[in-house]
Design a binder for these strands. Sequence first.
DNA 1: CTTTTTTACGTAGACCGTAACCATC
DNA 2: GATGGTTACGGTCTACGTAAAAAAG
Lengths: 314, 314
Amino acid sequence: MQIMQESMLPPSIEQLTTFMAVARQASFAGAADVIGKDASVLTRRVHALEQHLGVKLFERTTRRLALTEAGQRYLERVSRALEELTSAQQEANTLVSVPRGWLRLSLPRTFAHRCISPWLPEFMAAHPEIQVDARHTDQYVDLVAEHFDVAIRLGETLSDSGLVARPVAEYGKYLYASPDYLQRKGMPTHPAMLDAFDGLIYTGAAQPAEWLLSEAGQQVLVQPIVRLASDDVVTLLRAACCGLGVIASADWAVQDELANGELVKILPTWSVGPRRSVYVVTPSRTLLPAKTRVFIDWASQRLAQQLETANGMS
Amino acid sequence: MQIMQESMLPPSIEQLTTFMAVARQASFAGAADVIGKDASVLTRRVHALEQHLGVKLFERTTRRLALTEAGQRYLERVSRALEELTSAQQEANTLVSVPRGWLRLSLPRTFAHRCISPWLPEFMAAHPEIQVDARHTDQYVDLVAEHFDVAIRLGETLSDSGLVARPVAEYGKYLYASPDYLQRKGMPTHPAMLDAFDGLIYTGAAQPAEWLLSEAGQQVLVQPIVRLASDDVVTLLRAACCGLGVIASADWAVQDELANGELVKILPTWSVGPRRSVYVVTPSRTLLPAKTRVFIDWASQRLAQQLETANGMS
DNA sequence: CTTTTTTACGTAGACCGTAACCATC
DNA sequence: GATGGTTACGGTCTACGTAAAAAAG
């Protein structure tokens, strides 16, 4: 832990810009107009700069003002440095005003397949300068450490602190089965009847092989017969469509299957477990880059609309 | 005469250097040590910079800190700009004809005590505008990174690239012991006899406890009895003067002891190991500041003269 | 004498350090 | 409870503008 040398610190920006202005105008008084400060200020700044460098930058009388050789060399390089600096600033600025650059997304795999992937190409077409790095995972990751710009997360509540979670839509889980399966077993009219049905159980989050159904305050615990358990939602859905049993699924996950008749909703007024939300999560709220803001807007709008229609289907 | 836009003004140097330090240390607390200011100062500076740019540079929680994409880009370009600035400053320094300002020296500790310290006050008196920052170390340091103007280095060859090493003097290592020790053990007349003597061994550079003596092409490997080993030369010298054994030492390190009779040279025609050189090293700038040139001149002359007399003493 | 640069001086605001606060591990 | 980042507050110190002085043509 070494302490920086005062003597090696660069001069102040004010000194440098003042020096440049005076050199360009070849006059303190002229530069004073440009900068909008009194000439006395400029004298002091230039003097301080010369002191700091140990070099005389100008040869000056009251009537003439000329750069010394050291001054000319220094001017050239200082100009380059400050140009680099302002250009860096402009680049930084474009990142907040123009949507561009890599957008790193952390998405729940199945949700992304059903609810993000459909409109992602359209989003990218609308913002051709955005590059997307979509990482799919079903565990929570450290947004900051892994440099994610946005994450989509599902659940009842979010425990993460330090992050900003915006709820953009709600959804519930319901029971579904294929029409032919229901024809064989009969359509249940009360949850209690489900104990005799086959359950297709998701084992991803160490969930028990039972369903807590609720309708308007009433709750019923159902324990179906388990013939197939898996940690992969797609596998379970395929099985359900093929008539292997009943599946508890988020409504947004079965829109297609409902539409083409592969699945039918069972006990449509009874939902499985509590109501859940879709959250759009970012590392912070302020000073978001344009790419992030644009994605959040797009995602919020699309997801809200999409999940509402899913909700509306029976 | 158009007045400069406030919004286009670059941020302050303090903000920029602070940003760089925090980014490099990946920590506000760490950067606080480096800069030598309180961490609260740094957060304010970084916050102000972010506000000024309108961009978040770090994503930070109390436990994690990472550059945003904008921050990475900005860091790169700011680094370049500031390097240009300090480099411009150094160039300006080379054009000053009067030796003045801070002169940062990197010196081997023992060598400095014996061969630099004696004339350093005289040097400073001759150049009253020079301020000296003499750092003592026995490891090689990065001259450029730590902003040293000159380093003195000892050894057979120098591997450093990008640096300019000027050999200014040569020296050899020889064997010495106190008169009373030699009276007790007898004065050896051939290296082979030394195996029965006590060796005072320097363990600084993982050297073996043996001496490779050479005289006019002949070489003899001697393995003395080791009763004292140390990584501190002064300790060994004191021990030698007190009659604890034989020490292998650079001739310049024992001039005083030879002069006042505390030590006597053994087998004066046999040297220990290869011949070595004293180098004056500077960063590879073609143009050197006056302060540096003046020091190099002084050091070259003094060291050459000093080591020659040391060489001449028997 | 006029124009331009430099110095003197009193004030206002910025910036720093201390210390309390908050969050994370 | 310890570490690290942020915020609040009071004091100091710099840097500004006014204005007068000095220098040059």
